[in-house]
Write a protein that binds this DNA or RNA. Sequence first.
DNA 1: ATTTCTGTAACTAAACTAATTACATGTAAA
DNA 2: TTTACATGTAATTAGTTTAGTTACAGAAAT
Lengths: 137, 137
Amino acid sequence: MINSRLAVSVHILALIATHPEQLSSEYIAGSVNTNPVVIRRLTGLLRQAGLLQTVAGKTGATLTKDPAAITLLMIYRAVEPKETLFSMHEQPNPACPVGRNIQSTLDDTFVRAQQALEAELEAETLSDVIHRLASAR
Amino acid sequence: MINSRLAVSVHILALIATHPEQLSSEYIAGSVNTNPVVIRRLTGLLRQAGLLQTVAGKTGATLTKDPAAITLLMIYRAVEPKETLFSMHEQPNPACPVGRNIQSTLDDTFVRAQQALEAELEAETLSDVIHRLASAR
DNA sequence: ATTTCTGTAACTAAACTAATTACATGTAAA
DNA sequence: TTTACATGTAATTAGTTTAGTTACAGAAAT
């Protein structure tokens, strides 16, 4: 199971996008229901990815792009360091025809599957999420 | 990162499918490069899913379907108990409009992404993998 | 009977996740 | 300028997951 960092990050960015006032990490943590440090760790990654700006010591964060220009894939990549989705067993037996070629063979499939998933994440923007949040109200 | 059980299971099934003789869990473990118990745990799950048959105490395992009728999605579902791919944070604040609706909103996206991934796994069969293994030789 | 295999429970080490504590440092208002 | 409060980040912890391993019961075959 993929960790909850994407879910929490989308939550954070949706909050920032829909609130004109500056939100503290403590306030955001109250909405997400977690510890403020968890929020600041994620905003740190989102800042490194160029999705928002913060000023140390100063309350709040600001999006650096329009919500319609922020895809869920950007957010996912920002907070998920692992490049490959599927794990593979290490060092299968090179003396066996199957063992020798299983990694490259499976890699083709795994890359395709991962790309299909990422294409869906790329097709959805923060703006889409915000609109669905509003209509769910 | 998704665990390596799918990769190992495909490896196991490809070995069984391409060897007329009966293969012991120890032999398979030698090709995968792991412990025989790891193999038997996975063949147990694959058997429960109806993909192969074994007889306790008797060497070997036999596929119960044609390799062309076994999709990677069947294998994935057989060895991966978790139904949802993405985790979500628990109990976001219901007093906040974002917190109240983030779960159902994100669930839509996560289900779509997971389905896209699973569609790729469904489009590939054990037979496809075996052919690619053979052409890689 | 003895050997060899599978099935499975139980335990372990390593890795990962999220929560938490602690604190350095920056901002801004009194 | 001092005080209060915020962010950034390192370090620690508890819980979970994964794969590897040991141990052993029970089935099969010689």
